[in-house]
Amino acid sequence: MHTKIQIRLNGKMQTLTVPPFRLLLDLLRDEIGLTGTKEGCGTGDCGACTVLLNGKPVNSCLVLSGELEGADIVTIEGLKIGPYLHPVQQAFVQEGGAQCGYCTPGILMMTKALLDENINPTEEEIRFALSGNLCRCTGYAKIIQAVQTAAAELRRSYEEFPSSQRRGGCATNKMPRSH
């Protein structure tokens, strides 16, 4: 029982033959080998499996492969820009916004989604955006700080290179690219 789907994954068009009942999370991890996306609760509560589906953050543990025809998917592996870390990744490194790191890919994807929409979020807006991403190590203080640092860095780079904002900043999900 397989179905053929065409998707764009981290900027690259792919045709896959997949079981339609396979969860997007398992498709990414077990069939494609992108293990950066993590399974936490499996029920849409913790946000560890967050990926961008058509530009919007969703829990990949609740998406079926059979729904994906024509979908644009960005995972944590698609965040890097060539050899360079995305400013969101760089900020989490700089601020120490991770302890065990299990929730981190989901938090980075959610942060990316937030900053794509709002480049100057208040602390309340950051907490609101991250409320579906649970971290059991920290008190979230450094995570919030990392988001603020990433936002500041993106604002700075947009001022320096205004054209980059029109293309979605450093977003790799907007432009096809080869691996």
């Binding site: 179905t3 339609p20 399974e39 029920t43 059979g66 729904e67």
Partner: peptide, 12 residues
């Protein structure tokens, strides 16, 4: 967490 048993998905 349990995985889905096989089923078809149709998109009318």
């Amino acid at each position: 967490m349990k995985r889905p048993e096989p089923f078809e998905v149709f998109q009318p």
